[in-house]
Write a protein that binds this DNA or RNA. Structure first.
Length: 297
DNA sequence: ATACTCTTTCAGTTCCATTG
DNA sequence: CAATGGAACTGAAAGAGTAT
């Protein structure tokens, strides 16, 4: 049966030093080992290669043909081994990779959109695949690598994953700017309850707090939509009043907003990722870019 | 022959992975 | 977790080769 020979990487370092110095004592000093230790390594090298490798001379040792033939490949192997220990560098401009992001409908608009704009500018060769997030499979998808980032709320982020808070969001009531209710001035609870309401209600939306808050004050007659992104358009073209995260209607001149007459808890948008990618330089850079994108909106 | 330099060998020790 | 065994280390001493 053929036995498989093994070779300690330290022996290659010794061989390299012996080839460079052509002297056991100096080679030992170079590697900070004692001279007998270096002699022992030379013995093991001779055993491993089944060749004398060096011939003793008056002032040191002379490499035999076999040792001379090993000089270049040994240096290449040692350089490659050194390369394994070096910190991997990440250059956004030239990086080519694919990332998978799951986001709530709300996060698509408020986080993913500005992030993609910044990403396209700084790292044009990074491909992004965006899916609607499923709160039941966040953990599994991040573990398996089918997802790299999840954008959700702090409440929905599993405890054993890495998270980073992005920004705090609050709810407002939104109606079209020429809505008759705005002529009443201050909006009291009774007027609010008398309105027709629309809310986003699905497991994929950012938060179902508004539905519970409206139910608490007896508002059950309402329109619900699966996708929170539909709210601004619905409000714009109807008399409906939407209880919506502020950032979904911010800056839209044909939509007016006012504080809800009941207390509706806001939420903290959160970036979630797995330990698997925690130290990956590319992912570290991407996480920072997501945070920066949120701060600029 | 002697001194010098360098390599090799030996005995003891330490470290570390494996095993029960 | 202690016992065990192998690998590799160290310092000391011996051996080999060469110049004077």
């Amino acid at each position: 049966m053929q036995t498989i020979k093994t070779l300690d990487l330290n022996l290659l370092k010794a061989l390299n030093a012996l080839l460079d110095e052509r002297n056991v004592t100096r080679a030992a000093e170079k590697l900070s080992v004692s001279q007998p230790a270096m002699s022992g390594m030379l013995t093991r090298l001779r055993d491993s290669f089944n060749d004398p490798l060096f011939i003793r001379t008056q002032h040191g040792i002379l490499p035999a043909d076999r040792a001379l033939g090993l000089a270049i490949p040994v240096k290449q192997i040692l350089e490659q081994a050194q390369g394994l220990l070096a910190e991997p560098e990440f250059d956004p401009a030239s990086a080519e990779l694919k990332i998978n992001i799951a986001a709530s409908d709300y996060a698509m608009r408020t986080i993913v959109t500005p992030f993609l704009a910044a990403l396209h500018h700084q790292a044009p060769n990074i491909q992004v695949n965006i899916t609607l997030f499923n709160p039941r499979s966040i953990q599994e998808d991040l573990e398996r690598g089918t997802l790299d980032f999840v954008l959700t709320t702090s409440e929905q982020a599993p405890d054993n994953l890495h998270t980073r808070a992005l920004f705090d969001e609050h709810y407002v009531c939104a109606v079209r700017t020429d809505h008759p209710v705005l002529q009443h001035g201050q909006l009291d609870l009774a007027t609010f309850c008398a309105l027709q309401h629309v809310i986003a209600l699905s497991e994929h939306t950012i938060n179902n707090t508004p539905a519970r808050a409206l139910a608490d004050i007896g508002i059950n007659r309402r329109v619900s939509v699966q996708n929170a992104l539909a709210l601004p358009d619905i409000v714009r073209h109807s008399d409906l009043c939407a209880v919506t995260p502020y950032r979904l209607i911010a800056g839209q001149t044909d939509i007016s907003h006012f504080p809800p007459p009941v207390n509706i808890l806001g939420f903290t948008t959160t970036l979630v990722w797995h330990e698997r990618t925690q130290r990956n330089p590319a992912h570290q850079w991407l996480r920072d870019l997501i945070v920066q994108s949120c701060q600029q909106t």
